[in-house]
Write a protein that binds this DNA or RNA. Sequence first.
DNA 1: TCATTTCACTTGTCTAGACATCTAAAACTA
DNA 2: TAGTTTTAGATGTCTAGACAAGTGAAATGA
Lengths: 240, 240
Amino acid sequence: MIDRYSPEKIYMQISKAIEADIQDVFEPGDLYLSEKVLTEKFGVNRHTVRRAIEELVKQGILEKRHGFGTFIAEKRLAYCIKGHQRFTESVEANDLLAESTVLNKKVISARGGVAEKLQLKNNDEVIQVDSLRKVEGKVAALITHFIPKDICPAISEKYESGSLGEFLKAESNIQPKRISSLVSSAMPNAEDSFRLGMASSQPVLKVKTVNEDTQTGRRIEYSITRFRSDMIQLEILINT
Amino acid sequence: MIDRYSPEKIYMQISKAIEADIQDVFEPGDLYLSEKVLTEKFGVNRHTVRRAIEELVKQGILEKRHGFGTFIAEKRLAYCIKGHQRFTESVEANDLLAESTVLNKKVISARGGVAEKLQLKNNDEVIQVDSLRKVEGKVAALITHFIPKDICPAISEKYESGSLGEFLKAESNIQPKRISSLVSSAMPNAEDSFRLGMASSQPVLKVKTVNEDTQTGRRIEYSITRFRSDMIQLEILINT
DNA sequence: TCATTTCACTTGTCTAGACATCTAAAACTA
DNA sequence: TAGTTTTAGATGTCTAGACAAGTGAAATGA
C-alpha cells in the first residue's frame, strides 16, 4: 500500500489513500479511524499518520476533536469543487438571502471604524445586531449590523428575525439606501468559522456596507457581512 | 525564558517569543535564526521549535526555504491590520491598476468555463495571457485573460504590456464592454501565491469578468483576476 | 436513583535521533 | 577562466517512545 522508494513522501501517499478511502466508504459526519488503527493499517509511525491527517484537516476534508476522534467533515469545499453550485447573490439587493436568525443584540459605544462610517462621535451609543443568514436551510453568511441607538431604540426589544431594512421602515419611517460597499477577502476568526460551520482553513468573502436615510441623508446603518466562500459568490450588476 | 509548568504549551510560548523578537530586532526580508540556534536558545527539542515556527508561517509572519533558512516575511497581514491601508479599486473600471507585465502568452483549446463564457465550441482556439498588475511598484494582482484567437491574432506577437482593452481597440477596432462580474474569495494555488509574493495561508479576492464588443455583441474576453487580499479591496459603485 | 470516580481510549505535546533533500558557496579541475 | 564537484549547513521526513489532556462510558458510591 505504501511505496517506501517512491519520491512521493509517505505522508502524502497516506493522505491520498485516506482521501480515497473516505470517498468510497464514509459519509460526512462519520467518525473516522483512530491514529492507532491507521498506524497499524499503513505500517508507519503514528507521527507520520498525524502528518497525513494534518494535510486533510488543512484541506477541510477531516476534522479533529481532542480526546475523541477524527471526523469526516461535512460537505464544504467538495461542494464547491464538484458542481460549481455556488449561490450567486447580488450586492445591489439591500437584504440578501431570505432566512434570518438573530444571534445576539447589544448596545456598544461607537469607536474606530463604526464611529467613522456612521459619522458619530466616540462613545455615542450604537446597537449591534449579529445575525445568521441561510440559503436552503444552510448557513451561508454572518452579518453584524451597527445602528445608532437613537434612530431606532425599538430594535433592542422587538427585532427578532427577517429583514432589518423592512423593520427600520416600519418602526422608524426610514428609507435605507446603500451608499457604499467594500468587498474584500479574509480568513475568518475562530468564532465566525464556527458559526458559519466551515473549516477555519477556508476564507470568507467580506462586504462592508453603509446605508443612509434617503430623506435626511443621515448614516443609519453600517454592516459587515461574512459570506462562506464555498457557498456564495457575488454578482456585480451593471446599470446601462 | 520558557515556563515548563505553565498551562500554555511550550511551542506557543516560543512562537510568541519569536514574534516579539522579530518585531524588536529584525526587518522584513531578513534571514532569521536557524532551527539549531533556536533549539539551543530555548533549550528545547528541534521538533518543538519547528512546531513554533509552523505557527508563525501559518500566520504569514515567517517564511521558509528548504535547505536555506527561515525568513521574516515581507509586510503582508501586518500591513493590512496596522493601517487599513488597502487600496480601493473599482470593479467598474475596465482596466484596473496602472502597471502591467505580461508573464506568458499561449494558444489553448477552449473547454469548460472558458468555452462557456466566451460562447465558443470546444477546441476553438483561444489566446491565454497571464499578466501581473502592480500598485506602487508592488505586485497586487494576477490576471488571466482569454480571448478568442480569431478576434485579435496580433496579441500573440505584439501585446507586451499596458492595457489589454486599449490594445484591442487599437488593433481590432473593438469596443470592449463589461457585461458581468462575479466576485468570490478563495485560497490561491501554489503558483499564484508565489507569483503574488504572498503567504499561501492568505486568501485571494477573485473577480471573473466577461467583456463583449459593443458593436457586434460578441463575447471577446473572459478574465480571471486574483487580487492580494491584504492589498486590495473592491469598491462597488452605485449609479444613481 | 443520581452523582462521583475510575477507566479505556482518543488526540496533543515533547523528546531524541537518524537520514533525506536542498542550497549556496567553497574547492577543485580542465 | 569557466564549469564541475565537494562540502557544510539548512530545512524536511520518518521513527520510537513517553507523558499530558480531553472524552465518554462504565463502575462505584451514597
